[in-house]
Every structure is written in C-alpha cells, then in structure tokens.
Amino acid sequence: MMLLQVSGLLLAGFVAGGLNAVAGGGSLITYPTLIAVGVPPLHANATNGIAVAPAYAAAAFGSREHLRPQKRRVLSLIPTALLASVGGTILLLSTPHEVFEAVVPFLVLAATLLMAIGPWVNRKVTALNGGRALHPVALHLGVGLGCLYGAYFNAALGLVLIAVIAMSLTERLVRIGALKNFCTFIVGAVTSVVYGVFADVAWWAIGVLVPATFLGGYLGARLFQKLPERPLRIAVIAYGLILSVILMLR
C-alpha cells in the first residue's frame, strides 16, 4: 500500500509541477491526492502548503531580474504579505476539522472558478485601469487578501495574486508575475515554518512531493509549454468541478 501511495504522489507532484509551469492549478492535483492516500483534509492542506514552498522560492529567485527595478515596492509589500500570511495560518490552525471538511468543497470550487475566469479578469482589470495606477493602498489590500487566502488554502494562489496586482498596477506582465512570485514565496516561507511547527503534517508525503513537483516544473517549463495552454486549463477546470461535486457528496 505504501508503494501505491508513493507512486500516486510522485505522479501527482510531477503533473502538478508541469501544470504550474504552464497554466497553474497544480494544488488542485496534489491536495486531493494527499487525501486519497489517507492524509486527513486539514492535515493535507497544511502538508500541501509546505510541499509547494520550495517551488515558490525557486520561482521568486528566478524572477530576481524583474524584482530589482521594483525594490522599493517589493520592500514595502513584505510587512503586508507577512502579516496576512501569518493571519491565514492562524485561521487554518483555529479551524476545527469538521468545519474545514465542510468548507473544502466550496474552496475547491472557488479555486476552480478562479482558474476559469482568471485570464478574463486580468484582461478586464487591465482595461478598466485605463493605464493609470491605483492608490498604493489598493495594492496592499489586494496582496493582503491574496496572501491570507493562500496561507489558508493554497489552490489558485498565483491566479488570485496576479489578478489583484494587475488591478492595482500598470506594469508589464513580467513585472507583475515577478511580484506574484515574491508574494507566494513569503506565503510559502510562513506556512512552512508555522505548519511545520504547529500542524500535523505528513512529512513523508512532503519528501515525495517536493522533488516530483520540481521535476515536473522543470520539464513543464522546457517541454509542456509547447502544448497549447487552453486545453490544459480546460482539463484542470473540468477536473476541479468534478472533484468539488464529489467532495460535496461525501
């Protein structure tokens, strides 16, 4: 049975890493797989948060070229992202198991819908911005809400942050993506420390997922990007919708 569990997590991590490199939504693969191999939902969520943290760090490191010109903005966002991430972890640790199990189907559904409307939202908010940056408070509010959500339930975090950052700034997408990567790195760092110390996590599963997601992400960046993004996104959305219905009926 252990061999079957490890094999399932290796495959899930590999696929999730590839999806994150192309279309996002990898946690919609790894989180339910953790549940399927026997990790309780609340623990699976904390485990998944730690497992994806190294990939977030790698993405932030890879974006450093586009972060340097925004140094002042980056530094100003650190307290916001840190406080919001800590708040999200406290919220999760304070949530009873039965309550979390009850809201998980709706969180999965919300993450799936974000996958579906993410590109449309980005286009709309960019158009509505009309080339003008919003007040800096809007950026901090959006990043704070995004990091709070991400520390509580990781799925679709990148899409949430891309949307709220694009709504507030008039930067090129590559700079917005770099800010997103930096914020997800902070979320990953905070969740790793807090959940690693205070939550019951499946360390064996983390040990399997981390190298698998890294390999999937590397090959995704090199090979999977040759595939059209739209069919991949549609497949993940369909999977998320089916999964949310199954979880609601459990």
Score class of each variant (00 low, 15 high):
Ala51Glu: 10
Thr30Glu: 00
Gly24Ile: 02
Tyr31Ile: 12
Asn45Cys: 15
Gly38Cys: 08
Ala36Asp: 07
Thr47Trp: 02
Pro32Phe: 13
Gly49Asp: 01
Thr33Gln: 08
Leu28Thr: 05
Thr30Met: 00
Val22Met: 14
Pro41Glu: 11
His43Thr: 15
Leu42Trp: 05
Ala23Gln: 00
Ile35Met: 15
Pro41Trp: 13
Gly25Leu: 09
Ala53Glu: 05
Val37Asn: 06
Ile50His: 06
Asn48Ser: 10
Ile29His: 02
Asn48Phe: 03
Pro32Lys: 11
Val22Asn: 05
Gly24Thr: 03
Ala36His: 13
Ala46His: 01
Gly49Cys: 08
Leu34Pro: 04
Val52Ser: 05
Ile50Ala: 14
Pro40Gln: 12
Asn45Asp: 14
Tyr31His: 13
Ala51Met: 09
Ala51Asp: 06
Ser27Pro: 00
Ala23Pro: 01
Ser27Thr: 13
Pro40Arg: 07
Ile50Gly: 08
Leu28Ser: 04
Val37Tyr: 06
Val22Gln: 09
Val39Gln: 08
Gly24Gln: 01
Ala46Ser: 12
Pro40Lys: 06
Ser27Leu: 00
Pro32Asn: 13
Ala46Tyr: 02
Gly49Phe: 00
Val37Phe: 05
His43Trp: 15
Val39Phe: 09
Ala51His: 07
Gly49Ile: 03
His43Tyr: 11
Gly24Asp: 01
His43Cys: 09
Gly24His: 03
His43Pro: 00
Asn48Gln: 04
Val37Ile: 13
Gly24Tyr: 02
Tyr31Met: 13
Val39Leu: 09
Ala53Phe: 12
Ile35Glu: 13
Thr33Tyr: 03
Gly24Cys: 05
Leu28Lys: 03
Asn45Ala: 14
Leu42Gly: 08
Leu42Arg: 15
Gly38Val: 11
Ala36Leu: 12
Asn48Thr: 06
Asn45Glu: 12
Val22Tyr: 08
Gly38Thr: 10
Ala46Ile: 03
Tyr31Glu: 11
Ile50Gln: 08
Asn48Asp: 09
Gly24Glu: 06
Ala53Gly: 06
Asn45Thr: 15
Ala51Tyr: 11
Asn45Leu: 13
Ala36Phe: 13
Ala53Gln: 11
Gly25Thr: 14
Leu34Ser: 07
Pro32Trp: 14
Pro41Asn: 11
Thr33Ala: 15
Pro41Gly: 15
Ala53Thr: 10
His43Ile: 07
Ala44His: 05
Asn45Trp: 12
